[in-house]
Structures are given as structure tokens and as C-alpha cells.
Write a protein that binds this DNA or RNA. Structure first.
Lengths: 130, 130
DNA sequence: ACTGTCCAAGTACAAACGTACGGGTGAGGT
DNA sequence: ACCTCACCCGTACGTTTGTACTTGGACAGT
């Protein structure tokens, strides 16, 4: 039912902070942005307004302060975004991207262990249903 | 050194075909696009021109036909694109995306086997060097 | 030579994006 | 009561993107 317009890159960064910090004022979101990604306070304000227009966030006034809250779960947005990327860049196939991530970006030993566990879990489950 | 402007979504789709079909005329690229993703011939032309402007493709005239060729390897573009996505949407961490792909998008049995092999290969290599 | 077809290349143009400024207004300090 | 600071909100504005039309020339068949 979504049919929200997709998030732009900038909006995504702000949305990420919004998910992490829960409902929060513009000031707080702005402060929580990664330092190397400095954007103007007003820019963050604009992004939040756009997030709301697009249906990804809601807001209420607490006194004179507007508090923004996410209306969409990260999982959903990630799904939509990743699906789109996989479609456009890999013709819809998942594995090439998985391969790329593991081989090209490299993962740590503990992550590798987690991955193995994940694979094994799926292997045993795969036997039963599909 | 790259510092090409990033590819837009539409450009990406065309680039993908360009990689697959090797050097090719606009007509061929247009024909090779997934049927459900119909875009006008002229639109493909525009995308190819933009790909060239951005440094992702080169072209030469063969008679009156312009032949486009990729100038960047898929791997490179994928790396840049995925890095950007991982940065913005996952704060730079790889595993959450890997997890998402495997769990949410689901992979087939044979892919799972491949994945296991991949994991095992990395496990044995990880012991030796880093 | 005339016509229809095909292509390159220039131009178009509205919407989305990234990024921000400026006016107005309330709240707090002095 | 006044000044200052913070914040909301409307507005702005150049660039990029998606999508295409159009003009003019080359080639192919008649």
C-alpha cells in the first residue's frame, strides 16, 4: 500500500537518525548527525518536513517545538530501497550483491561467524518448507 | 581519483545493459532493456549521452551510428554505489545489509550452498593472513 | 530525383533535490 | 519593558533527473 515517493539520499540520512533517536526535535536530530556530515540546521528542518510530506514521518508541536517521529519502520524502507537497487543494478538477483558485500567490502571474523550461523540456520529450515 | 558524479537510477539501468551487451549502438541498448521497463528510444539516447558526460562511457561514430562502450567496470560502479548506500542507510556497517538480503529477500537452496562455500573459504583464509 | 525511415544531436521542461536564507514570534534573561 | 536567542515556516534557487520532441541530414527503395 506504501506508494510513498522514494526517499532521496539526504532524506535517508536524516531518517536514519530519526529511527535511532526516536521522536525528537529538529535540534536533536541535527546534533545527532555524524559530525563529518555537517548540514545546516535549516537543511535538516527541510528534510524532516519533506519526510513528513512523503509520509515517512509525523510530527506534533510540543509547545513551540516540533517533535518528529518516524512513521515507517526501517525494515520497510530498507526493503524498498534495497529492492530497487537490486532491480536496477543486478537485474533483480540477490546473490551478486551478497557476494559483492562479502568479498569486496570484507567482513570481520566475528561477523563471519554470525554469517555461518545464519547460513546453517537457513539450511536446516530450508529442508522443511520453501 | 574517480570523482565522477554518481549515476542516477535511470542511468544505472542503461549502464547495466551497456556492460552486458558490450559496445553497442543506441538501438541495441534500447532493444535489450527489460521489456517491462520501456523507455523511449530518445530517452536511452539521452542517458547514454549523460553516461558519457559523466565519464562512465565512451563512444565513437561507426559511419553514422554512434557506438557506446562502458569506460568503467561494473565492479567499480557497484562498489561506489553500494558503499554510498551502506554509508547512508546503515551507517557504514556491512552486516546489516547482508542479513537483510539473506533473511528478507530469501535465497534459493543452490545459492545457499554457494554462500556456505564462500563462508568456508573465507574462514580458512582468515586464519592465515588478514 | 523523391520519399519514407533512421539516427544524431540539440533543445525542452517540469519535478525532485540539495541546500539554505529570512521574517515573524515566543520565551527567557536583565 | 526590551533585547536576544531559538525555532517554525515559507520561500528560494541552482542543479540534476526523468522523459521526450524536434530538426536536419544520410541511406534505401521506387
Amino acid at each position: 500500500m506504501g506508494e510513498r515517493p522514494a526517499l532521496s539520499k539526504g532524506e535517508m540520512e536524516v531518517a536514519r537518525v530519526l529511527w535511532e533517536k526516536g521522536p525528537a526535535a529538529v535540534r536533536a536530530i541535527h546534533a545527532a548527525l555524524p559530525a563529518e556530515r555537517a548540514m545546516d540546521f535549516a537543511t535538516v528542518q527541510t528534510y524532516l518536513r519533506r519526510l513528513e510530506t512523503k509520509g515517512y514521518a509525523s510530527s506534533r508541536l510540543d509547545g513551540r517545538i516540533r517533535i518528529y517521529a518516524a512513521r515507517t519502520k526501517p525494515r520497510t524502507v530498507i526493503r524498498e530501497t534495497v529492492n530497487d537497487l537490486v532491480e536496477r543494478l543486478f537485474g533483480g538477483e540477490t546473490m551478486p550483491l551478497v557476494r559483492h558485500l562479502i568479498e569486496e567490502r570484507g567482513i570481520e571474523a566475528d561477523e563471519l561467524a554470525e554469517l555461518r550461523a545464519l547460513v546453517e540456520r537457513l539450511e536446516s529450515k530450508g529442508q522443511a518448507d520453501d
